[in-house]
Simulated scan of single mutants.
Amino acid sequence: MDRLSNTIRPYAWGSTTAIAQLIGAEPTGEPQAEMWMGAHPGAPSRTERGPLNEVIDADPAGQLGSAAVAKFGPRLPFLLKLLAAGAPLSLQVHPNLQQAKEGYEAEEAKGVPLSAPDRNYKDANHKPELICALTPFDGLCGFRAPEDAAKLLEGLGVDSLKPYADLLRAHPEEAALREVLTAVLSADRDEMAQTVADATAAAQRIGGDYEPYAGIAHHYPGDPGVIAAMLLNYVQLQPGEALFLGAGVPHAYLNGLGVEIMANSDNVLRCGLTPKHVDVPELLRIVRFEATDPGVLRPEASPDGEEVYDTPIDEFRLSRFVLPEGAPAHDLTAATPQILLCTAGAVGAGELGLAPGQSAFVPAGEKAEVSGVGTIFRATVVA
């Protein structure tokens, strides 16, 4: 078992306090957005044996287990993070596996550099993800029913939003959502900036259900994504609740601290709330235009105390143990690779002691027993 030393990414939307408070450190004054735990080459965790990606590359079967290598290849198929949003992240979607392969191959054939700002596909993998709240956590997830979105837009009393509300009512669900998102993202930038300014002023005046959008507009004035965000479900997670984001589902995290796990990919198509490249035609090819319930997940407890967040994919499996005083040790030995992350209390993992924010990598088949008083998240795969 390896204690992990992890990189904190200083993205501009990150909270200046949340990760520092969790790990018991003094805030630096700079944004601390994500702590990465895993073998992603962009910021691999470090161990006493070397960077985790190099440790795995040197012995894939020994570190990951033969079943995981056979199913996912010689790499750790997930990335675990602490995510601390102090401002809204970009409104975005992720491709499914076939779309990712096609998109990656097409851009490779065109010779688009991986570092190019207009590159959409950094790899050939999909990126389903799960966010589990550690604090109250606000986000956007999936489309509202068109009628609900129309009422929300109309409630602002902004004349330039009326055509969008009319479109939402004029077509069947899929066509209505597609036409309105296309119109919003393709509108004249100056005209849309004025629409967003008028909508922001109205949202600030009305408050209530409109407060989240006034907050979004504060960070991204004039951005078409402010209007696009009103087409989506607004979700407030309580600690321990989670959201699963599948392929094609538009979403954005707005505020809060959580544990995030995802397939090991960088593929993102952006809809707005960002200064980065927005490829509208490709985005419209990827988005699933259907109204959905956000589907808030609550963990399912098993007899041994493991609380599992059930998802429909195999690249990752996230669970947690909430360990009370006097609880017996739990044997987590498995034939698959694991990362253990403490988020509260003091937890023993094998011979390691883990405090909040500390983590460990457990190679496949290695004895893994946890005990103590606190909360520990377990990330692994289904192989």
Rank of each mutant, 00 (worst) to 15 (best):
L177I: 02
E351N: 15
E241A: 15
A133H: 09
G157C: 01
L354F: 15
G272M: 05
L82V: 03
L4T: 11
Y210Q: 09
Y213S: 01
G29D: 08
T16M: 11
L269C: 06
T343Y: 03
V370L: 11
A183F: 09
M1R: 12
V381E: 10
V180M: 05
A68N: 09
L354T: 07
I19S: 05
R270F: 12
Q194L: 14
Q338A: 05
P363W: 05
R46G: 05
K122W: 03
A170C: 12
P51D: 05
A349W: 09
G295W: 07
L22Y: 01
E282W: 11
T375C: 15
A197E: 14
D266Q: 04
R49T: 07
T333L: 15
T274F: 11
T182P: 07
D279E: 11
I8E: 08
N53H: 13
D223M: 01
A301Y: 06
A229F: 02
L257Q: 04
A70D: 10
T135M: 08
H171W: 12
T195P: 06
D209L: 10
E107T: 10
H171I: 15
Y220N: 06
S5Q: 08
G207D: 04
L231T: 03
L323P: 02
I261M: 03
D198H: 15
A202Y: 02
G248S: 04
P10Y: 00
L114N: 11
D123P: 09
L161Y: 06
G24W: 14
H94E: 04
Q358G: 13
V278W: 09
K110M: 13
C271E: 13
P212I: 11
V55E: 00
A203E: 07
L89A: 04
R75L: 06
F321P: 05
M1W: 07
A20S: 14
G348H: 15
R144W: 11
S319D: 05
L340Y: 04
I19P: 00
S115Y: 12
L352M: 11
I227C: 08
P275N: 14
L232Y: 00
L177M: 08
D209W: 10
G24I: 04
A84S: 08
Q236F: 06
A145S: 11
A368M: 08
E26G: 12
H219F: 09
G50F: 09
G240R: 09
V226K: 00
L91R: 00
T28G: 13
P239F: 02
V370H: 13
E30K: 10
N267M: 11
L181P: 08
R285Y: 15
E102F: 12
G139C: 02
A84Y: 02
R205I: 09
E315G: 06
A202S: 11
P294S: 02
A61T: 13
P337M: 06
V280A: 10
M35E: 07
I23N: 09
F316C: 00
E307W: 04
V381G: 00
H171P: 05
P363A: 10
K71P: 14
E369R: 10
R46C: 13
P337W: 03
A242S: 01
A291M: 07
H277V: 13
Y309N: 06
T200S: 06
